[in-house]
């Protein structure tokens, strides 16, 4: 019995605690990100933003959540019921499982696997299924068009994200997420030598999370709300939570790949007093601000423009940059040894 406790039960409880320690703050962050977004948008458009519920409107997100929770879940009669219900769960689940390999500080990570970057890439490439399944299972025009759009869009931008990740990996020499940050501790943060890749990655992240100006799957002017049309109550809330958790995840991934993760900007006195997770958090906050800034500023892309940007601009350019980075690394003998 003691053996059973020490081999199975105790590690199981520890892992469960670790998972909760990530998910509970993450969900709180998701709630606060919606508030953050609305406040920034309001400031940019000279409005007040949410200011009624709680001090400075801080509890607005929870009020919205409670409202959604008490609404009726409507199942369209012609919908494919099981897939209709699984789709939002998949979206939500995928936005959470990716956090398992995100390091918050040196060694503070739930699962420090060797192929962490590939894992993140794999999970983000699955995000399309939630939307496609929702669009198809709704059995309705607008969601279906939205599903087709999103399938093509996310597959297209994944390709350039893949190449960007390859350039970073060439400079790191490991697929471990923590190693990416450690490699930046020795040299400069990667957004300096790989600046064009940083820009491409961020724009592709916008497309991958279906955010403005690439929010064509839910373009309200053409498709009402795209794949979310038939959803209500908690099913809708799960899509919403998943979308924002994905935004935070993509910001975190950008911070890790290009902005040095948990590292302080300068390794000198006042900066390195502040613990790593706070730096990481600040970087995510900065990138989320850019997400919202882009939303408040840019008009939506037309679909053919979106495809052109992905396939004819980003793909050749990132391919060229992979070759260039590899060439420079070999020519100047900078290839990281493994």
């Amino acid at each position: 019995m003691a053996e059973f406790w020490s081999i199975y039960l105790l590690p199981g409880i520890i892992i469960l605690a670790q998972i909760l320690a990530i998910i509970v703050p993450l969900l709180l962050c998701v709630a606060m990100v919606t508030y953050y977004e609305r406040k920034i948008m309001a400031a940019m458009q000279l409005r007040m933003g949410p200011n009624v519920v709680g001090p400075f409107g801080l509890l607005q997100a929870f009020a919205d959540g409670a409202k959604l929770f008490f609404k009726e879940t409507i199942l369209p009669t012609s919908a494919n019921k099981i897939i209709f219900l699984i789709a939002p769960m998949i979206t939500f689940l995928l936005s959470l499982v990716a956090w398992a390999v995100i390091p918050f500080d040196d060694g503070i990570v739930v699962s420090d696997i060797n192929v962490g970057i590939l894992y993140l890439f794999a999970i983000s490439s699955l995000g399309v299924y939630g939307i496609v399944m929702a669009g198809w299972a709704s059995n309705s025009k607008y969601p279906f068009l939205s599903a087709l759009r999103s399938a093509a869009q996310m597959v297209s931008y994944e390709v350039s994200i893949g190449f960007v990740i390859i350039t970073v990996l060439l400079c790191v020499g490991s697929l471990n997420v923590s190693d990416v940050v450690r490699a930046q501790a020795e040299g400069v943060w990667f957004f300096i030598p790989l600046f064009p890749m940083f820009v491409i990655f961020f724009i592709s992240a916008l497309a991958e999370t279906n955010r403005h100006p690439f929010d064509l799957p839910e373009a309200e002017a053409e498709l009402v709300a795209g794949y979310q049309v038939e959803y209500s109550s908690m099913a809708f809330a799960l899509f919403f939570l998943g979308e924002y958790a994905n935004m935070i995840l993509m910001s975190g991934l950008t911070a890790i790949l290009f902005l040095g993760g948990w590292l302080p900007p300068f390794d000198i006195a006042p900066f390195n007093w502040i613990p790593g997770p706070i730096w990481f958090f600040l970087k995510i906050l900065l990138l989320l601000f850019v997400f919202v800034w882009v939303r408040a500023t840019l008009p939506r892309y037309r679909y053919d423009q979106l495809m052109r940007l992905g396939w004819k601009v980003f793909l050749p350019f990132s391919l060229f940059w992979v070759a260039l980075t590899a060439g420079v690394l070999v020519a100047f003998d900078l290839v990281p040894q493994t």
Binding site: L118, F121, A122, S125, V128, Y129, A151, A152, V155
Partner: peptide
Amino acid sequence: MVLVVVYVGAVAVLFMF
């Protein structure tokens, strides 16, 4: 991971499409 990235993330999306 490659199985998930290539087959689930790309090939099956095209099938589904």
